[in-house]
Write a protein that binds this DNA or RNA. Structure first.
Length: 361
DNA sequence: CACTCGTGGAA
DNA sequence: TTTCCAAGAGT
């Protein structure tokens, strides 16, 4: 029977880590704030994607105080393209809490850390072990996969989370929690990968249940998932007679909260795309517009649905734009669109606008 | 507690 | 091309 507290298990992983561990910008960083930023950016996001964002972020906001003092629009602009924008809003809000309700330093107490917005159990363990070498366990995607294989659990991960947390805590090396947690994640990221794991060079090969049963390719078991529904969205690029276009800022909560976009909405059954756009602009902005020529069609996939944006150039006819379904509306010159944080699908609209040379008539 | 929340790398 | 899934958290 596999003993998770076997010192040889910990020793073999740490030895492997010292020889083969990754070199990362935030690893062994002296500032807990930098560790914190990296942990938030790394949620559901690959290391390679995070690195340039991490470096730009620390240049713009080198301290907790600097982040707390920044306007939210600058924070979102630095996060633009990274996704899951609530992470940026929560990080910003947590920095303000630390400055205004504390002494501006990052806390070392687990319960205090867990109380900060955007920090759950795994991120708290990641920060406290990496920044302060505290023995707090983690359970991220890498660790889940490693442990499911090590223990040969043939049930979907969502059904064995309590067991996996127990295992992570039992395994954790109390004398080297920082290196051990980092080693566990590195093992999952570089050896015990989702496909084609490199079992022949794995320090835990002889202890691994999935390897012994020759089932590494089947574990972890896949979760059942429904196909993503598709929404057709009519989108308006509305010009006024000064050549400016109308953009709106989405409500703070929910999808793409706080980011700017071109207005529009969902195509309803039996409706033409032109009617859809005119209706949405009337409902959400109280504007009368003329829908003109097609600009671009953008296909984009979110986590739980796909969208097809059918974008049309439009001309403002009458009415003053009202923020009925958003937080703010603004007329902006095309050259100034760069100053606003936009979601990825809208970036493609901006590119199309500039390359098409379309302007007001 | 099942659902919501982005984007891109990798196969 | 699709499909999976990444250092998960909030509600």
């Amino acid at each position: 029977m596999l003993d998770l507290t076997d010192p040889d298990l910990r020793r073999s992983l740490l030895t492997w880590y010292h020889r083969c561990g990754r070199v990362l910008p935030w690893r062994n960083h002296p500032d807990p704030y930098a560790i914190w930023v990296s942990e938030i950016m790394l949620q559901q996001t690959q290391v390679k994607t995070v690195i340039p964002y991490y470096q730009r972020w620390l240049e713009a906001f080198p301290t907790i105080a600097a982040l707390a003092a920044a306007p939210q629009q600058q924070v979102l602009k630095l996060w633009q393209g990274l996704g899951y924008y609530a992470r940026a809003r929560n990080l910003h809000r947590a920095a303000q809490m630390l400055v205004h309700q504390g002494d501006g330093s990052f806390p070392q107490d687990l319960q205090t850390v867990l109380a900060l917005p955007g920090i759950g159990r795994t991120t708290a363990g990641g920060i406290l072990s990496a920044a302060f070498n505290q023995p707090v366990a983690i359970l991220d995607g890498n660790v889940k996969r490693v442990l499911v294989r090590l223990l040969a659990l043939d049930r979907p991960i969502s059904q064995v989370l309590p067991q996996l947390w127990e295992a992570s805590e039992a395994l954790l090396d109390r004398h080297h929690p920082r290196d051990f947690n980092q080693a566990l994640m590195d093992l999952g990221a570089t050896v015990c990968t989702p496909k084609n794991p490199a079992c022949l060079i794995c320090p835990w090969r002889s202890a691994c249940g999935a390897y012994a049963l020759n089932r590494t390719a089947e574990l972890p078991m896949g979760e059942t998932s429904a196909p993503l529904p598709l929404k057709i969205i009519g989108v308006a690029v509305i010009f006024n007679d000064r050549g400016q276009v109308l953009i709106d800022r989405r409500p703070e909560d929910g999808l793409l909260g706080g980011l700017w976009e071109f207005p529009g909405g969902k195509l309803e059954a039996g409706e033409t795309i032109t009617d859809c756009i005119r209706r949405e602009i009337a409902e959400e902005l109280a504007l009368d517009i003329e829908v003109g020529q097609h600009l671009i069609t953008v296909d984009h996939a979110y986590s739980h649905f796909r969208v097809q944006l059918q974008v049309y150039c439009c001309q403002h006819r009458s009415g003053e734009p009202q923020p009925l379904a958003c937080d703010e509306v603004r007329w902006v010159a095309i050259a100034d669109l760069d100053q606003y944080p936009f979601p990825k699908a809208n970036e493609r609209i901006i590119t199309a606008l500039r390359t098409s040379g379309i302007s007001a008539h």
